[in-house]
């Protein structure tokens, strides 16, 4: 059976520290757009930590929620793409083929989670910042759409190594950059087709739910709700 990659986000562990956001930038060659462009709504964060205020001072509460591509099994971004740049892989990933993308931005409208980001300009890395670029991840040019890939390059690397070493993948072998960087261990990644994997176990948790479940996208990210003091 092929893998079916998924993630669990434990909102009771997540502290909102934002390390995952920077980790994703570092891993995936996500451009920094600078203040002028950021002010115009062009900042790119494949992963964002949403924060919402509840109540008013002094009974005020804040909640955090890391949101990345949910790799929906019924992804609204896929059928609308005229070029198959946004498409579903055998392993359940919502793949984004930058070279096929012509920049209609339709997929980004259709995505209920607003996690797709458009390259408004060619990215710039004043030298020698270009040395930080990850050679395993392509740099996107102007006019294409990009988004969280579940760090597909890391998945492939581990799969290739395992194949070369003639072994099966173990749970926890694949760690996307955000998962790897999260010191609170709020993010767990793995194979949903393996009922014993940690991510499967967490996805079955009674605390678990999907974001915007009623939109019918069948996301593969499960959010475990933050609990309150007992």
């Amino acid at each position: 059976m092929p893998h079916k990659w998924g993630m669990a986000v434990d909102l009771d562990r997540c502290t909102g520290c934002g390390a995952c956001v920077t980790a994703c930038h570092a891993e995936n060659n996500i451009p920094t757009v600078g203040p002028a462009q950021a002010a115009r709504g062009r900042a790119m964060h494949w992963l964002r930590v949403e924060r919402y205020w509840e109540g008013d001072f002094p009974d005020v509460r804040l909640t955090f929620r890391p949101v990345m591509c949910q790799h929906c099994d019924a992804a609204p971004c896929e059928p609308v793409c005229p070029t198959y740049a946004s498409h579903h892989t055998d392993e359940g990933l919502n793949a984004q083929v930058y070279n096929r993308c012509i920049g209609t931005r339709y997929c980004a409208n259709a995505c209920p989670y607003s996690v797709r980001f458009f390259d408004f300009f060619n990215p710039q890395w004043p030298k020698p910042l270009h040395l930080q670029l990850n050679p395993d991840v392509s740099v996107r040019e102007v006019g294409v759409m990009e988004k969280c890939t579940f760090c597909v390059q890391r998945i492939r690397a581990v799969e290739i190594d395992a194949k070369a070493e003639k072994r099966e993948l173990k749970d926890g072998d694949v760690k996307p950059a955000c998962v790897q960087g999260c010191s609170a261990r709020a993010l767990v990644f793995g194979d949903l087709n393996d009922p014993e994997s940690e991510v499967s176990r967490l996805s079955r948790s009674p605390r678990g739910s999907k974001l915007l479940e009623d939109v019918g996208t069948l996301p593969k990210v499960t959010y475990l709700e933050r609990q309150t003091q007992v």
Binding site: Q37, R40, G41, R42, A43, R105, F120, F121, G143
Partner: peptide, 15 residues
């Protein structure tokens, strides 16, 4: 030539 960025389109409002 300059890139689509010179329009007013931005991240949630792609059209």
């Amino acid at each position: 030539y300059n890139g689509f960025g010179i329009t007013g389109i931005n991240n949630p409002i792609f059209w």
